[in-house]
Design a binder for these strands. Structure first.
Length: 265
DNA sequence: TCGATCCTGTAG
DNA sequence: CTACAGGATCGA
């Protein structure tokens, strides 16, 4: 379920709960979750505690003491949270970190597409060297955006979703940003005017910033997953909120793209 | 730079 | 039963 705002919500919550507690044991209930590493490697986290937590795009980095870091990727259906009692975990749990105080850090993932890996901290930066600029970081300037856009002939939506050179946008917020900026998802990036690009740059930040508080709310009420009101995503056949034209769904890169034929050109 | 693929769950 | 799901990697 997670895109950047949801991952941000998860990391924010973890920062308040998961830092400082020593890890007493690690259970890997589904070895594939550690792929391509051996699941045994996760056991090396035992005896360490989480010192800091960082989000890079959709990657979650849990930095442990003494030079180790966990990298968690939630992919389509993952979740990472602290539970009061590690014995009370649900069935979709793939990896369980038991804290010395009895609480547990739980990675669950019904679709088994996510991953949990343990690296030495210095390796992580190298490993994530290829991930692009985070759209909520200071590096994501309008100038940067115009520059990288000019170098790509890809359809706008595929460009936004590629995680490079921009990292963190997924299917929903790419569609939302393009709608907001009134740009067609199939328009080759380099053909967009500077004016359009500036508008899209602002729209990206706007839709993400707007979504974070919503994501925080939905993650703070377990089992209360209200889908927030999207402007185009998942609105096939429903009237465009701007011009009432029915929203269309098409396929791009194997994913659904929703857009308004009239507003977005 | 693309489609196929990894998995399971759920809606129609 | 099929289609589809908020992601990314891999091989051609």
């Amino acid at each position: 379920m997670p895109e950047l705002p949801e991952v941000e919500a998860v990391t924010g919550k973890l920062r308040m709960t998961a830092i400082g507690a020593p890890i007493r044991d690690v259970r890997v209930l589904r070895p594939r979750a550690a792929h391509p590493q051996s699941p045994d490697i996760l056991k090396d986290a035992i005896g360490h505690c989480i010192e800091s937590i960082e989000r890079r795009g959709k990657n979650i980095l849990l930095h442990l003491d003494r030079g180790l870091s966990l990298r968690v990727h939630l992919r389509m259906a993952g979740n990472l949270e602290v539970i009061r009692d590690h014995r009370l975990h649900r069935s979709a749990v793939r990896v369980l970190f038991q804290f010395a105080d009895g609480r547990g850090l739980v990675f669950d993932d019904s679709r088994m597409l996510g991953s949990v890996n343990l690296y030495e901290t210095w390796e992580v930066s190298a490993l994530l060297g290829g991930v692009g600029v985070d759209p909520l970081s200071a590096e994501f300037t309008s100038e940067f955006f115009v520059r990288v856009a000019g170098r790509s002939s890809r359809p706008a939506k595929l460009f936004l979703m590629a995680q490079s050179p921009i990292s963190g946008l997924g299917n929903i917020y790419s569609a939302e940003a393009l709608f907001q900026a009134r740009i067609s998802p199939v328009k080759p990036m380099r053909l967009l005017s500077r004016r359009k690009l500036t508008s899209l740059h602002a729209a990206i930040q706007e839709v993400l910033r707007e979504a974070i508080p919503q994501a925080v709310l939905s993650y703070s009420h377990p089992g209360h997953h209200e889908s927030m009101g999207y402007r185009v995503y998942d609105r096939e056949g429903k009237p465009c909120v701007r011009c009432r034209t029915p929203i269309v769904r098409m396929h791009q890169g194997g994913r659904s793209t929703y857009y308004c034929r009239k507003c977005q050109r």
